[in-house]
Nucleic acid binder design. Structure first.
Lengths: 144, 144
DNA sequence: TTATATAAGTAACTTTTTGTAACTTACTCT
DNA sequence: AGAGTAAGTTACAAAAAGTTACTTATATAA
């Protein structure tokens, strides 16, 4: 892991300030992190977007198998939110039995590109993180 | 928003495949997205990390004010997880009343850099997303 | 000498969200 | 007529999050 210089920390702080025009401003009517990002950065949404990035088109039950562990109910809910926010498209073929296909939109692909940088970083360092976690039965807190 | 070419989509799919060595492999003993990233990409953890990127050192109650809306209980829990996983450090000054300071570690700063790219993207496009969301009272589903 | 204040939490309880498992719909095929 | 199928929905249970009051240790004010 590359160490971060003081200069870079300052640059990051400036970017945060710019991003949160409303930093420290309690009265903000809405917050992009809470109101937008939170709906696409939970674990199920991330997995759905990643799998649709890998398999360009997936049906409901295919997605359910790929994103193992997700329930019908939550998959259905997450897909609705991701569709409503424009990350993916839903196409219905009124055959019997019914067929429904999910696919990332251009917007969803654009999101995936950014998301992937983060998931790659986390995957790369997940061993380190798990090692940290193990150790910290004993608290890492410093006392002065 | 930059449109994504087919070539780029293929490149992204390859990166996903590489990242998930175990893609399509149900028996994976652990999943970095579920077991590691999920604990640092929820809305409260993101906000904690961002605020600690902006204000390098914050005490418990200062964080509580910055990350408005969070409860004592959840703030305390999230801080413990973020400390255990190595993103931040906790320093205790046994004064009266007690003083506790939280600060990003180098590892946390490294995470923040990647996270920031994503939050900037989301912030930049959050108006578009909210506009999408409004419209989609009428479903966007296509029928064939 | 009590009484008050303070920071950083914890504990008990309520509300919301998530997960589980069975059910529904609209046909086709046996 | 009865079974089978995909894509969900529904009713209920379990888990997570939010709320409010409480704790601890000590300095300072009354």
């Amino acid at each position: 892991m590359e160490t971060i210089t003081e200069n870079e920390k300052v640059r990051v702080a400036k970017k945060i300030k710019k991003m949160f025009g409303h930093i420290d401003q309690r009265t903000a009517e809405y917050c992009p992190i809470r109101d937008v990002m939170a709906l696409a950065s939970d674990k199920w949404s991330i997995l759905i977007v990643l799998y649709l990035g890998y398999y360009p088109i997936l049906r409901f039950n295919e997605l359910k198998k790929k994103v193992y562990g997700i329930s019908n109910k939550v998959l259905s809910e997450k897909l609705k939110f991701l569709e409503a926010d424009g990350y993916l498209s839903r196409t219905l073929y009124p055959e019997v039995p019914i067929r429904v296909e999910y696919e990332l939109t251009d917007f969803g692909h654009s999101y995936l590109q950014k998301l992937l940088d983060l998931t790659e970083w986390v995957t790369q360092y997940s061993d380190i993180i798990l090692a940290n976690r193990k150790k910290s039965g004993k608290s890492t807190t410093k006392v002065f």
